[in-house]
Amino acid sequence: MWRRLVRDGQFLMALGVVGLIVGVGVLGPRFVRNPHAFVWLPNQPPSRQFLLGTDPFGRDVLARLVVGIRTSLLVGVYAGLIGVALGVTVGLVSGYMKGVAGETLNLLTNVVMVFPVLPVLIILAAIFERRSLVLVGTIIGVVSWPWAARCIRAQVLSLREREFVRLAKISGDRHVKIAFLEIMPYMLAYIVMVFVLMLGGAIGAEAGISMIGLGPTDAVSLGNLLFWAMVHEATRVGHWWTFLPPGLVLTLLTVFSLIMHKRMDQIFNPRLRTW
């Protein structure tokens, strides 16, 4: 199964693009100038010295982009981990427990899912005056777990009826043991896939709240760059180097993580499997 994945052209290409961006975000900050420092004349278009020019404050846009990628990724990873942890737990329990417990959790999942995400994010973000990366990541994760929970619950519901689970039951295994030793292995691939999707979604969500100024305080992130570009009306004055690069990177990240997810789904989804 994994072997089929690593030979898949589309997946490898998407992985390559995402990997490249992640690589830049992880290693890049060491090689660029200080993103906060005022290093040159403001509003300079790209030149040999400043590959992406400078912003209205005279800061190096390339440095801000690279550091911004790292910040956005970090927030995305925090949000993804929290979303997956919450989603898998709720999904596993609500899928496996029959009766009142399972139904109640399902109801909770559906209710939280229906909450309009952006207003909630705005309210939560506005409550906290100083917002750290972890906080923003947590907020996004807490709002996006229902999606993961539903996917996992659906998987568990079908796995629960399989004969090997029956076999475990009539061999005297307890529920917890069955959930983790029998059902979980079948879901590992799926969980990874869900994480990849949440990562893409979280990066987009972070960009969303950063663009309205409610992102991590004083941090440089992709959304933050777009926020400042909006504030300084970069589109009107034609300073494309301040908004096009972050927008492009954001688009590439979300689209290609979606493609990765799509290919993983096509290979891992039990409905498409032959066994």
Binding site: A168, E182, P185
Partner: peptide, 8 residues
Amino acid sequence: PYAAFNYF
């Protein structure tokens, strides 16, 4: 019999 065994 194929369904009764956990593949992992």
